[in-house]
Simulated scan of single mutants.
Amino acid sequence: MSWVIVSLAAATMLAMALVLSFVLGWANRAFHVEVDPRVDSAIEVLPGANCGGCGYVGCGEYAEAVVENNVPVNLCTVGGKSCTEALAAVMGVEAEVSYPWRPVVHCGARYADRLGRTVYKGEQRCGPANLVTDIQGCTYGCLGFGDCTRACDYDAIHIEDGLARVDYRACVGCGACAKVCPRNIITMAPFKQERMMVVECSNLDAGKDVKAVCKVGCLGCKACKRTSGMFAIVNNLSTINYDNYTRENLESGLLAARKCPRNRLVFVGVPSEQDILAVAEEDLPDVIEPDFKTSVDDTEWRG
């Protein structure tokens, strides 16, 4: 009798296996999605950092966008020129030139330069601290609690004396630091040269109000604008017109930097050699401007 039960169980299992095999085979044919083999090839040449610097969630999504939507092949800041060329080869297109994009910190005030600072005992992060309106006099400046440092996977940005500083030799341009800064004083800028002149300030207030909260903030005095056509004053703040940023105009730009009473026109940079692409024919944007936020811009008021 026992052998009958065993045989029945074995037959039942065999029948179930045959049915499931049939169902799985049918499902595989019915729901099969044809994948362009170039997607796998594109994924193979990407660095696999999944940093999001290209604007996509990860390397896989970017690879699909390149193959299926003809997205430019030069968006990978981590892979640099070699990655651009490899993706171009996969797609059978000519490698498009691009600038290496790197972060710029639009603040130069260290602890000793900040006026009106108060003792902050809350969570030691920039996000929560940004909601406290009186943490420091300048509502535009770097908070210095290191959210950008923690966001960087390449150890390329550090807090020095309360101020974020970029190590451009380690930076790959992923943009993680710019995305996490609650005041948006870290912006991504195209580097046409190894060293680029920038304005190390973000305060949009009038000069007398800047003096009240910072020892080094831009006063909007227009000395730079009068000296060089590279500069413009926008909302009381000096900005650089990068369309006029040429080697020929740099001489007047250097003179303007020397005339700045607050020494806020400085050079930053030195990307790695592999990131300096052939950009002679590419146009620079007119002005590289941060999208500044103050302590209260994202506050939801109740009452």
Rank of each mutant, 00 (worst) to 15 (best):
residue 85 E to T: 01
residue 53 G to A: 13
residue 22 F to K: 10
residue 80 G to F: 04
residue 84 T to N: 05
residue 23 V to M: 15
residue 80 G to W: 06
residue 41 S to Y: 07
residue 33 V to F: 10
residue 7 S to W: 11
residue 4 V to D: 15
residue 92 G to S: 14
residue 20 L to P: 00
residue 63 A to C: 07
residue 56 Y to S: 07
residue 21 S to H: 14
residue 59 C to W: 00
residue 55 G to L: 04
residue 11 A to Y: 08
residue 74 N to D: 13
residue 19 V to G: 03
residue 70 N to S: 14
residue 19 V to T: 15
residue 30 A to F: 08
residue 8 L to A: 15
residue 62 Y to N: 00
residue 52 G to F: 01
residue 27 A to R: 10
residue 42 A to G: 06
residue 6 V to T: 11
residue 83 C to R: 05
residue 17 A to Q: 11
residue 56 Y to E: 03
residue 65 A to Q: 01
residue 4 V to F: 14
residue 54 C to S: 14
residue 54 C to Y: 03
residue 44 E to F: 12
residue 34 E to F: 08
residue 93 V to P: 08
residue 43 I to H: 00
residue 44 E to C: 08
residue 89 A to N: 03
residue 8 L to M: 15
residue 32 H to E: 10
residue 52 G to N: 09
residue 5 I to G: 04
residue 34 E to W: 06
residue 41 S to A: 11
residue 79 G to P: 02
residue 29 R to S: 09
residue 54 C to G: 05
residue 54 C to T: 04
residue 67 V to C: 05
residue 21 S to G: 15
residue 14 L to D: 11
residue 32 H to N: 11
residue 87 L to A: 05
residue 43 I to K: 14
residue 45 V to D: 07
residue 35 V to D: 08
residue 90 V to K: 00
residue 83 C to P: 02
residue 80 G to K: 06
residue 70 N to T: 13
residue 7 S to N: 12
residue 17 A to S: 07
residue 84 T to D: 02
residue 24 L to I: 11
residue 72 P to L: 02
residue 23 V to D: 10
residue 6 V to R: 13
residue 10 A to H: 05
residue 21 S to A: 11
residue 84 T to S: 04
residue 25 G to P: 05
residue 79 G to N: 03
residue 31 F to K: 04
residue 21 S to D: 07
residue 6 V to Y: 11
residue 77 T to M: 10
residue 51 C to T: 13
residue 59 C to K: 01
residue 80 G to L: 04
residue 35 V to M: 14
residue 19 V to F: 09
residue 63 A to T: 05
residue 83 C to H: 01
residue 49 A to F: 13
residue 65 A to D: 03
residue 46 L to A: 00
residue 86 A to W: 00
residue 61 E to R: 06
residue 89 A to T: 02
residue 66 V to E: 00
residue 61 E to D: 15
residue 32 H to M: 12
residue 16 M to N: 06
residue 2 S to P: 00
residue 89 A to H: 00
residue 51 C to K: 10
residue 11 A to V: 09
residue 95 A to Q: 02
residue 4 V to K: 13
residue 28 N to D: 06
residue 54 C to M: 06
residue 78 V to N: 01
residue 91 M to C: 04
residue 61 E to Q: 09
residue 17 A to I: 08
residue 43 I to V: 15
residue 44 E to P: 04
residue 35 V to E: 15
residue 45 V to E: 08
residue 54 C to N: 04
residue 18 L to Q: 12
residue 41 S to G: 12
